[in-house]
């Protein structure tokens, strides 16, 4: 049972890390555009070179 002293806090800390990550992602607006994000990952082209100003 001694293992519990380490394992339970470790499980809780890992879970809290995940929860913290979720809340951070939510706050920084990463859940705002789910449809866009789904298709955005397919576009990996570098932006076209900017034309030099005349």
């Amino acid at each position: 049972m001694d293992a519990l002293i380490i394992l339970v806090p470790a499980a809780l800390v890992l879970g809290l890390l995940g929860l913290g990550g979720f809340l951070w992602a939510l706050r920084s607006g990463q859940y705002e555009d789910l449809d866009g994000a789904a298709s955005r990952i397919l576009f990996d082209d570098p932006p076209p070179p900017k034309e030099p100003k005349p």
């Binding site: 449809d35 866009g36 298709s39 576009f43 932006p47 034309e51």
Partner: peptide, 14 residues
């Protein structure tokens, strides 16, 4: 669609 998003963003970024 996603391609529209891409087109708009790229065309404006140009």
């Amino acid at each position: 669609c996603g391609a529209c998003v891409w087109l708009v963003e790229q065309a404006l970024a140009a």
